[in-house]
Amino acid sequence: MLKIHGISKSFGGINATNNVSIELKPNSINALIGPNGAGKTTIFNLITGKISVDKGKIFIGENNITNLKETVITHMGIARAFQITNIFPTLSVKESIKMALLAKTHGLNNMWDRFASHSVNEEADNIAKLAGLKKVYNTISSELSHGDQKLLDIALALALKPQVLLLDEPTAGMGPEERWEMIKRIKELWQKTKMTVLFIEHDMDIVFDIAQTIFVLQQGAIIAKGSPKEIKQNQAVIKAYLGGGKK
């Protein structure tokens, strides 16, 4: 589904991404892990065209999307949620989701309908249900709990009906219970929609629980990839990442 061939990116002298190759199978759920500053978010930024690739190529299906514009790549079927929640403070949950739905179909150029009564209402309803946001449907985004803000960020991505969904630390800043709830929700989403999912996560228990394939990143380079079982036994990973008696 998503194929990344040896991409690199440096900022000044720092190789934030170093010859990274990743391939995601259709309908798979995958994790990208690595210590702080390993370059995980940078990879998401490269895939989505938020920043330009120095070297290498990225494909979605058969289409080469390397260094296309962020807006174009989004329309080609890649959506993301952000590490630091990235929502619209004065818009309600419902309004925000409708905006994303309209953005998907270029409906935001429409000047002749009223936004409030616009026909995407029902679809927005469904997305909110899917994301578990129905109970706060009419709440203004800035007044949501942190967890709901994270969910809204994901819901915005879901509204785009992407083929590939990138989630950057969906459980960041959550307590243990909230974390598992979020993960359950993501797993459910993935099962229902059959998107290809790539998520970044620090909690190893979570990663081993739901990821089919795990990519381990260190200093911009992939040092291991494989199933949870393989990663657990990988010496390089144990030494570099899990090393020092993780839990």
Binding site: L91, K104, L108
Partner: peptide
């Protein structure tokens, strides 16, 4: 009050995010 008008509010609220929704 049109979808276009809400697009303005969206940019005002968070100019970084719309591109990731495919919005120019």
């Amino acid at each position: 009050e049109s979808p276009f008008g809400y697009g303005l509010r969206m940019i005002r609220d968070n100019p970084e995010r719309p591109a990731a929704l495919g919005f120019n």
